[in-house]
Amino acid sequence: MELLKVQELNKSYPSFHLEDVSFSLEKGYIMGFIGMNGAGKTTTLKSILNMVHADSGYIEIMGKEFKSHELELKQDIGVMLGDMDFYVKKRVKTLTEVVKRFYTHWDDTIYATYCDRFNIDEEKRLCELSTGMRTKYALTLALSHQARLFILDEPTSGLDPAARDELLEIFQQLVEDGQKSVLFSTHITSDLEKYADFITYIHEGKIITSTTKDEFIDSYAIIKGTLPQLTDELKELMISYKKNDFGFSGLMKTNDHSHDIESDYTSERPTLEDIMIYYAKRGRTHA
């Protein structure tokens, strides 16, 4: 069953368009939402939650159309969007008292467990927390009301490696029962390389692919060779390439013909980061 279904989401700004964004997330999995700065990650997440009003598109969460069941569905969604920059002079515990009243299934025990796990001092004022601590607090709020779908924008940014690792472990614990799903955006792709089940890649407002992580990586290859080997034909096949004094390297989509090419040149399996970098480079050269 799909917990989240996004269909043909469109949103136009003077200098940016979200174009026919479609993807879906089955229950029980972790999906990484990747893309460069300004690719449309936050706009997409906010449009899903009706916090940005999309020009067109259809959102379904847990089998229900989102807009007509917004309040009801938001009970089951754990959200973290950006920095918590409101009521910064208030103490953590005061804010929690406010937030918990929004949620019917708020669980004080879960809340206390995460506060403990993240070392959150409830007596502190929000402005006294470091960036990482504020992120942890925002996550704690998202995790404490027994949601089934988690929509988190850059939850790992600002966290140190140990805290990031801890958070990713929490994600895996959440999906272990097969009932909950996590959609989180990030540009720290090493976080995803290991355990994200699905990857949705957005580039310049368009979804390039949304598929399992392995399929995504396997659908690309990095080709390396000497400068004389860099033919016009090959240039056409590559998403983009880089030249140096001794040779070139480029990214191409793997397909039926690519095996021949891969055997003529040095070919490597790209990382998620490689794929993003070569797409970014194409954006500049083709513009």
Binding site: G28, Y29, I30, L168, E169, Q172, Q173, V175, E176, D177, G178, K194, Y195, A196, D197, F198, T212, K213, D214
Partner: peptide
């Protein structure tokens, strides 16, 4: 499968495969 994925810190789909 899901427990193996969590314990080994790998994706569920990897274990499934």
């Amino acid at each position: 499968i899901r427990t193996v994925a969590k314990e080994l810190r790998v994706s569920i789909i990897t274990v499934k495969k």
